[in-house]
Computed example of a mutant assay.
Amino acid sequence: MPVVTKITTQKKNTERYNVFLDYGKGEEYAFSVDEYVLTTFAIRKGQNLTDDEIAEIQYEDHVKKAHNLALTYLSYRMRSVKEVQQYLQTKEMGDDAIRRAIEKLLEYRYLNDLEFAKAYVRTHMRTNSKGPGLLKQELIEKGITGPDIEESLLEYDEELQFENALKLIEKTRKKSQKQSEKMMKQKAKTTLLTKGFDLSLITKALHEVSLEKDEDEQWEALKKQGEKAHRRYRKYEDFQYTQKMKTHLYQKGFPLEQINKLLDHLAQQND
């Protein structure tokens, strides 16, 4: 039966200890352990250790490593249980060690999926104007269960959802000045749907914000799109050119009456 001959503190990590054993052929390095494991098993010089005891010590040290890795990971920000599990898997921690580490983290409330979900919703509803649908999907991906998701989304009241939707519409409007009125409205609607807002709220928000262009603004937008299309299609003969221009600009949301007016305008310029 091997006997503990020496225990030394590691130079790079003073909370870990190297344990040396003598198997009958002289002293040799055997394994290292966390300080917690060292004291839990009361490992000391002159102690005899069976193979089973050594295996148990090393197993508990593996669990402690998983626990310490998780604590470091959690020190940067809150995490869900699933996120911690996945992180520990990347660190090649065994399934049982991960389970034990998670249980202890839950016991001491370092992990709490409901509190994580609430904090996640509060952060994202105020920093990047995500809608509840998108937040729900992201929480599902992070392993949050249905009841916790539903409770956390109560943090996001309809008034703030509406306010965020209006901000996104205004942002879309500023980016789409060169687009037709119809295309601008469609882009705003698509943006809000992608961000996870409910269709009824989107409809309400679109009615609240005026995306209508006056006649001069619509004409300027059409001219910009028409000039780009003209450079693209001017190589075609008259009939083909006209058809391609009309199709392109109609798909951009401009009415045919205005498109015909633009084509006359371009024809006069090129005469």
Rank of each mutant, 00 (worst) to 15 (best):
Asn48Gly: 12
Met1Gly: 13
Met1Asn: 09
Leu69Glu: 05
Ala221Pro: 02
Leu193Pro: 00
Lys204Cys: 00
Thr14Ala: 14
Lys174Ile: 06
Val19Leu: 08
Glu107Ser: 11
Gly133Asn: 05
Leu49Asn: 13
Ser80Val: 06
Val209His: 09
Lys25Met: 10
Glu27Thr: 12
Arg100Cys: 05
Lys244Gln: 10
Gly133Ala: 08
Glu115Met: 09
Phe254Asn: 05
Glu15Met: 10
Thr72Met: 07
Lys185Ala: 13
Glu155Thr: 05
Phe41Ala: 04
Ser200His: 13
Arg122His: 10
Met1Arg: 15
Gln177Tyr: 07
Asn68Ile: 01
Thr247Val: 09
Ala97Gln: 08
Glu15Tyr: 09
Leu168Trp: 00
Ile98Val: 11
Lys64Asn: 10
Phe31Arg: 13
Asp22Lys: 02
Lys246Pro: 00
Val121His: 02
Glu56Asp: 06
Glu217Asp: 14
Leu111Gly: 04
Glu35Gln: 15
Lys174Pro: 01
Thr247His: 08
Leu71Arg: 01
Leu192Met: 04
Gly24Trp: 09
Arg77Asn: 13
Ser176Thr: 13
Gly26Trp: 12
Phe162Ala: 01
Leu199Ile: 13
Lys223Leu: 14
Ile43Pro: 04
Asp22Gln: 03
Tyr76Val: 15
Gln218Pro: 03
Gly143Arg: 05
Val3Lys: 14
Leu105Met: 02
Gln85Asn: 11
Lys104Leu: 05
Lys246Glu: 11
Asn260Tyr: 13
Val84Glu: 05
Glu151Leu: 15
Leu249Gln: 08
Leu74Cys: 03
Thr40Phe: 13
Lys178His: 11
Leu38Ala: 02
Tyr59Ile: 01
Phe20Cys: 09
Lys171Cys: 05
Glu163Asn: 05
Gly94Ala: 11
Ile144Asp: 00
Ala165Leu: 00
Phe31Gly: 10
Leu211Gly: 06
Gln85Cys: 10
Val63Trp: 00
Asn128Asp: 15
Asp96Trp: 07
Ile140Asp: 06
Leu139Val: 03
Leu21Thr: 07
His248Asp: 12
Asn48Ile: 12
Gln243Pro: 00
Glu217Gln: 15
Met245Glu: 01
Leu199Val: 14
Gly131His: 07
Glu155Ser: 11
Glu27Val: 08
Ala117Met: 04
Tyr110Gly: 06
Asp157Glu: 12
Thr190Phe: 07
